[in-house]
Amino acid sequence: MVVPEHRVFDPASSDDRSIYDRLVELGGVHVFDTTATQLHSLRALLPTPPEDVLGEEVRWVHYPWRRSLVRVLGPRGFRLLRLDRNRNKITAAEQDDMARLCVGVVGLSVGHAVAHTLAIEGLCGELRLADFDDLDLSNLNRVPASLFDLDINKTVVAARRIAELDPYMSVVPYPDGLVESTFESFMDGLDIVIDECDSLDTKLVLREHARRRGIPVVMETSDGGILDVERFDLEPERPLLHGLLGDLDASALKNITPEQKAPLAARILDPSKLTPRMLASVPEIGRTLSTWPQLGSDVALGGASVAAVVRAFGIGTPPPSGRIRINLDAHLAAISEVEPTASGESISPANQPR
């Protein structure tokens, strides 16, 4: 585990002030200060924030990977202004409740999109990110990172991106991934765990831990927008992965080859419902394809889908266990002409009242 790399300097701390002064004195640090605009926008909010928020001391944030110091509003004003446009799709009270959620994300390809979307909407107070892998050029068809992030651990890449969005959000990277020595600390205190890892044995071990602790598991699989929810918080005896792998033990899945993994993955996804291009790709995995194909747009949809589930938990309307497919290709194939009604409004024929 690594500690966050950025640092928020509290003006009330003499230690923080001396470190800030030393950074400025050494030079070579870019300084960004837009707090006048931030404060103007904060004052323009409706209703007007209380005086103790408007008078909150600003902070400096050091981003060493950017060689930059950025001045921002204090934590209450920053959160109030940054998340203001969420209202009232998310009420202020609901947003406060979500700030107490702790969410874990395992696997930082689709998981990067998930974690960033959760951070954008302020759907949790703490994110834990687990992945042992470094960012590779081949990841840049779906992970919203850059060439400057190559060869950096995926959890660090995601944590840095979130820190640049919200320096006050707690993000805890686990760059060794989930192994025997990290499982307990990663799972301890989680409210929801998101599974976006490739390893089948890790998927099973993760669910064993979640079921034992009563933590719901959410998983999004890019092909056809498959979204799975397993409510181990309500069903302590629920079969892992909906029972789709039967009684397979996690230890039997270690070190299996891509060719051996493909049919098991197909069992989880249900071959009869795979998209045609994915179905044609499965027998090629390990032969003419390095691994299964994934598209950036599918990954972005996955981030939105999982965020909707976490948001539902946060506002007190969590879904039950089960599976749904959010297949945009199928929806696009169902597009129909829009016809005007007598009142001048438009309505799709497929949605006309009966």
Rank of each mutant, 00 (worst) to 15 (best):
319 P>W: 09
235 E>R: 08
124 C>V: 09
91 T>F: 04
182 T>D: 08
235 E>D: 15
80 L>G: 06
56 E>W: 05
353 P>M: 03
181 S>E: 15
326 I>P: 05
292 W>R: 14
261 K>A: 13
116 H>D: 09
159 A>G: 03
133 D>L: 03
307 A>S: 07
180 E>H: 10
180 E>I: 03
135 L>A: 07
263 P>G: 11
210 A>M: 04
151 D>S: 13
220 E>M: 11
259 E>F: 04
199 S>I: 01
187 M>Y: 13
81 L>D: 07
5 E>D: 10
342 A>P: 05
238 R>I: 03
30 H>P: 00
31 V>L: 14
113 A>C: 13
130 A>F: 09
336 S>V: 08
110 V>W: 11
290 S>R: 08
133 D>M: 06
335 I>G: 05
81 L>P: 08
182 T>S: 14
57 E>K: 15
124 C>W: 03
82 R>D: 11
167 P>L: 04
163 A>Y: 10
110 V>G: 14
77 G>H: 00
92 A>Q: 13
23 L>D: 09
158 A>K: 12
38 Q>Y: 05
6 H>F: 06
187 M>H: 09
207 R>I: 00
203 K>M: 05
156 V>E: 08
74 G>T: 02
171 V>Y: 06
108 L>T: 11
72 V>D: 09
334 A>G: 14
71 R>C: 11
234 L>W: 11
3 V>I: 07
233 D>C: 09
281 S>N: 15
130 A>S: 06
38 Q>R: 05
331 H>L: 15
311 R>I: 00
125 G>V: 03
130 A>D: 09
204 L>I: 15
156 V>W: 00
118 L>H: 05
93 A>I: 10
267 R>M: 07
95 Q>C: 02
299 V>A: 12
14 S>R: 12
310 V>R: 09
250 A>S: 14
197 C>S: 14
206 L>Q: 01
89 K>I: 09
262 A>Y: 01
125 G>W: 01
247 D>P: 00
235 E>F: 02
283 P>M: 03
229 V>L: 09
282 V>P: 01
60 W>T: 12
66 R>P: 01
91 T>R: 10
88 N>E: 06
217 V>Y: 04
288 T>K: 05
144 P>F: 06
79 R>C: 01
219 M>L: 10
87 R>I: 05
125 G>M: 00
325 R>P: 02
308 A>T: 03
105 V>R: 11
240 L>C: 01
284 E>D: 05
325 R>S: 10
25 E>A: 15
55 G>Q: 06
314 G>R: 04
265 A>Q: 13
13 S>R: 10
293 P>N: 10
294 Q>Y: 02
114 V>K: 00
42 L>G: 10
347 I>W: 12
314 G>T: 04
304 A>M: 11
310 V>K: 07
272 S>R: 15
8 V>K: 03
288 T>R: 06
307 A>D: 01
261 K>G: 00
281 S>G: 04
222 S>N: 13
86 N>G: 06
271 P>I: 06
19 I>L: 14
